[in-house]
Design a protein around this nucleic acid. Structure first.
Lengths: 197, 197
DNA sequence: CGGTTTACCATGCACTTGCACTGTAAACGC
DNA sequence: GCGTTTACAGTGCAAGTGCATGGTAAACCG
């Protein structure tokens, strides 16, 4: 065995470089040499950890979506309130947050989404809200409606699906600068209000 | 003056080739030579009509968005009904239509959207629903609510904005195969129902 | 007829690309 | 000590890239 290194840290470093390059100049700027330079390593190291450029970008997208999901989970965990409505708003806001890291991730994900058009492997990583998240959100909506005294209607899962679809769309708009985070928040608020009424 | 040619037709042909190549193999497959081959012309012709590769792709995106808008307008015009609700649904459905041409356009637009991350010129062509469309849609919503006997509430513009945001998001999902057109339609229906209640 | 303008085609060039390959230093078992 | 495995660095190469350039054929004006 040779030098003991932290593989995870190495990969994270390389992926970080891919994110930066992409956000700065578009995904077409991402090349072996550029990533190597950005990460301050040699091309050889990249080849050592990834079998191809495709594999690198795939992993970068994978980690980006996982990071976004983590943001959502953090928002849920950090909501120091028992009000389901507050928690619901908090986790939806995660996608339109003005936080720089969020914007970075959304931008990269959008740039990589172009690849998903022709690469099914990439498309997988970008799928809409998964079952667990939908179930969680539907639960929040039901609880929030109950909290407000609205009568239940058993369509919470559909409502949840729409919520995430809308939040994603607004998140992209914010990332591309079409809307301010405040404007997006206003729209989301309006919709949530509608849902819970 | 030399051979009289239809410039518009030439450009349309080249852009069509760009769309095809992109949808088939991703935008990274789009090169001068490939486009030339796909269109059955020489690289020289492309250079004659576009000052650079960037210009070609920009025009391709421009024409794609205009084509999508035309689809929406057609849907409005084709709705042989006076019911504003029916017209509203019809034009929203334009974005999630299962029609092959629609899917092609959406796919290309998504692939090109990746470029918008770093190219502001591209970003312009992809902006959310413009003022005119929003005004039109808000009018439809107000009329549909009146038709149903719901009381007006003066938030129709916000409602319209949300509608298009949601429809766009669903359109992307359909184009990438995450949802069937029917599933997307169901969600849209549910939302419109909510809006008009 | 010549001259000018347009509409290309074909080629050449400088540059970048991903990847294969070779070399080498470090850490361990024996 | 030696051999093996891992973790890279460095280089070379074939393929592809956008674009500049030079040439040519057609259509019109005079």
């Amino acid at each position: 065995m040779p030098k003991i290194v932290d593989h995870e840290a190495r990969r994270a470093r390389l992926v970080e470089a891919v994110w930066s390059l992409t956000v700065r100049g578009g995904i077409e700027q991402v090349s072996l040499r550029k990533v190597a330079e950005e990460a301050g390593v040699s091309m050889g190291q990249i080849q050592h950890y990834y079998s191809s450029m495709q594999a690198l970008i795939r992993d970068a997208l994978d980690r980006a979506t996982r990071a976004v999901n983590a943001t959502i989970e953090n928002a849920v965990a950090a909501a120091d309130t028992t009000s389901p409505e507050a928690v619901l708003r908090a986790c939806l806001y995660a996608l339109i947050s003005p936080a720089q890291e969020s914007t970075r991730l959304m931008r990269f994900a959008l740039a990589a989404a172009g690849r998903a058009v022709s690469d099914p492997t990439m498309a997988k990583a970008l799928a809409p809200a998964d079952d667990d998240l939908l179930t969680l959100t539907a639960g929040l909506i039901a609880a929030a409606r109950e909290e407000r005294g609205s009568e239940p209607r058993g369509e919470e899962r559909t409502d949840a699906d729409i919520c995430w679809s809308l939040a994603t769309s607004l998140g992209v708009d914010v990332a591309l600068g079409y809307r301010t985070p405040e404007a997006a928040e206003h729209l989301l608020d309006h919709h949530v209000e509608q849902i819970l009424r």
